[in-house]
Design a protein around this nucleic acid. Structure first.
Lengths: 156, 156
DNA sequence: GTTTTAGTACTCGGATATGGATTGTCCGAGTCCAAGAGG
DNA sequence: CCTCTTGGACTCGGACAATCCATATCCGAGTACTAAAAC
């Protein structure tokens, strides 16, 4: 059970785009150079965020990606769901209803294992849904100042 | 981010073994038939539980698997950790410290994204650590009665 | 000087390979039981 | 009848393939700017 690394990339990109929201769209080339990431694959992940309505993409020579909503309205849960899919980590296959063990009538209550897993995952989701990109921007050091300064130095 | 199906198998097997703890070791063949699972691969997963000290395995013709501890002392977290590895779902690669964005001094505070992820995962783990195999046995219907009855009918 | 227009360089978007982890399969070492021979 | 021996069948354990998904890569469609040419 491991999360794709694209999640870390996406979150960092969202925070950075939050700081650079007045600079217009940021091209994938600059974002990749910003974090020293594989440009093509990062693009693919940001496309997923665009499809989910978290980012907007503008084509053309001055194009790039930008936040589609104010940072306060983007939760970490949104980003994770967009990048990892809406599938729950634990998928209950109801194996208890198969084989010899299931003989002798159906099961009435829902599977306790599934319920416990769901509870745990809900707690996880609740935590992530409580943190917005704006929260991440606030807690970060150094602040957006340096980000904007470094970005202004980027040429090409 | 998806959990291996072995987790569901392992948990159900632990619950069943809890009910059958007076019947002696249960062979992998019976367990596989019980849930209609691929025998060989289930064995491989239960071996992981054995290595983690959750199950005991006895070789020989009357051998099989059994719980190594009372069900009250085995948490769902134990089983998940044994089967999925101790690795956290979110692995922070500290990409903020690489590339152009990192120029101009080091970062003082730990990464806020990593901290938030860790908090969420902690909440998840806490939920799972609070549920034991005994809890699962208690909440299940039908109870261990039918399990023992069906198991007694198993021959070969 | 102003306007038009063709060119060009850069962007995102989706279709296409690759690698490593999860899943599945196989054979060998060990153990216990059962049956048979001997006392 | 009891004991010892020998054989066999069944168990777990770990090494060996196959399949699937995350990762990485590539080429095509579209846009805006540039610059030159015509007016």
């Amino acid at each position: 059970m491991q999360m794709g690394e694209g999640v870390e990339w996406g979150l960092h990109c969202c925070v950075t785009l939050g700081w650079l929201k007045d600079e217009g769209p940021v091209s994938i080339r600059k974002l990749a150079a910003w974090f020293d990431l594989p440009q093509e694959y990062l693009k693919k992940r940001l496309q997923a965020l665009t499809k989910a309505g978290i980012l907007t993409s503008t084509p053309g020579v001055r194009g790039g990606f930008a936040l589609a909503r104010p940072p306060e309205q983007i939760t970490m849960m949104d980003v994770v769901t967009a990048l990892e899919g809406p599938v729950e980590a634990f998928r209950c296959a109801e194996i208890r209803q198969r084989g010899v063990g299931a003989e002798g009538g159906q099961f009435r209550r829902p599977c306790g294992i599934s319920m416990a897993m769901r509870r745990a995952e809900l707690a996880w989701r609740r935590e992530l849904a409580g943190q917005t990109i704006a929260d991440l921007m606030e807690g970060a050091t150094p602040s957006g100042e340096r980000t904007r300064r470094n970005y202004a130095r980027m040429r090409g």
